[in-house]
Design a protein around this nucleic acid. Structure first.
Lengths: 218, 218
DNA sequence: CTCGTTTTGTTCCCGCGTTCACAAACTCCT
DNA sequence: AGGAGTTTGTGAACGCGGGAACAAAACGAG
């Protein structure tokens, strides 16, 4: 019982490790830009800002891609991580809410870099429709279903005010989006099977304030 | 030995709890807006999207602010959390890098809301100097030291391209900033005693992509 | 005043993640 | 070919965080 369902490896990688793989990937890209072909776990770990033992254990979940006594081949490891994360294919992304933040996100290079491309910008405010941002036309939020169906969108980004966020999430889920990146400062609830990641600027500030206050109490 | 140095309580709150306190605070503010005076741990937990046992344990680190059989007084608890986080006082914030993201951050209500105010916007590009964003004039990055000294800034926000981030961080640390919120997609290293929190949009996307890919493999 | 109801504060246990430390494996030099 | 030096991959120990479950405390009804 509890047998592995698929004969394909499909090992599950710990969540903490998944969150660090993109950091390693970025560090490897930087090394590759510097024409470095090989690196040790120590090198890569310091470039990524982590402990080398942790790095080795993280990479071991993917397989044995290093060579003892030598280290890792930068290009090979880079490809393996990219494949594992899923950024060797291209993901379509929809951004809802084209205020200041939505604007910035649409222009953000990380969103347009390899692996992701913004297929639509949506806003409920019709005075914005037709405006072009980062080479994409702003369209009506009601076009969501049509766009998702046509373009096979799996990832949605919410950059609306908090009051509208839950409604946007519900519509996204209803039309088949299963991954949401939420920038609205509010808790949104979704059915199981849908992944939500939250980016909350004011919470980050408050965490810093807490530690700052602690430092001041000496 | 290892005696508590200060007679003042100064209990240290687990990091995981610190990260949730702002969420509770926001939920309490929402409840207060709805003129709700009292709430149970169950109520507040569901508003904050967490388990009620976890919420009670979190709050117990602050003290015993609830009443058994009754619940928590919304206003009182709100004040206690705000005091513990440190947002009853006002924190001066400097934002460096006024590109698309810096623009959005300067206008973001979470940065201007109670507890924080942006005292300066700095950019290395002198064609931007004098431009007014969100009621604050953009100034030269070289004015950093002067502004920090004058205004007692403790928190710095980095919204520059990755290539400049480490340099900005170094300058910030040198002039006494001890908390940094980094939006640049790169690892920055700072001396111990300085807190850095990282917000990395492309990493969040990649984590979603990983899970999305997993879901697709059925 | 006493009993039942409600809800907090806390204890206990479990699982995940981090780190150390070491065996296995590879290269290079003689 | 063999030994010294390097570096990976992993087993084991440890600590933190999450959740269930329960005792303690407040309230209200009779």
């Amino acid at each position: 019982m509890t047998a592995r369902s698929s004969s394909e490896t499909a090992r599950d990688i710990p969540e903490a490790t998944v969150a660090r793989l993109p950091v390693y990937l970025r560090a490897l890209n930087t090394l590759a830009d510097e024409a470095i072909r090989t690196c040790s776990s120590e090198d890569l770990a310091s470039a990524a800002g982590v402990n080398s033992a942790k790095l080795r254990k993280d990479l071991s979940y993917l397989g044995s891609y290093g060579t003892r006594g030598v280290g890792y081949d930068v290009d090979y490891l880079r490809y393996q991580i990219a494949r594992e994360i899923g950024v060797t294919q291209d993901w379509a992304v929809v951004i809802v809410g084209i205020g200041n933040l939505g604007h910035a996100l649409a222009n953000y290079s990380g969103f347009r870099s390899r692996g992701f491309h913004v297929v639509a910008l949506l806003d409920a405010d019709d005075t914005r429709h037709g405006e072009e941002v980062a080479g994409v036309q702003v369209r009506a939020f009601d076009d969501l279903e049509e766009i998702v169906a046509e373009q096979g969108v799996a990832i949605g980004v919410i950059a609306t005010p908090p009051s509208g966020a839950q409604q946007v999430a519900d519509r996204m889920v209803a039309c088949g989006i299963t991954s949401i990146l939420n920038f609205a400062p509010t808790v949104i609830t979704v059915p199981s099977g849908v992944d939500v990641r939250k980016v909350d600027l004011s919470i980050e500030l408050q965490i810093l304030a807490y530690h700052e206050q602690r430092k001041a109490q000496l």
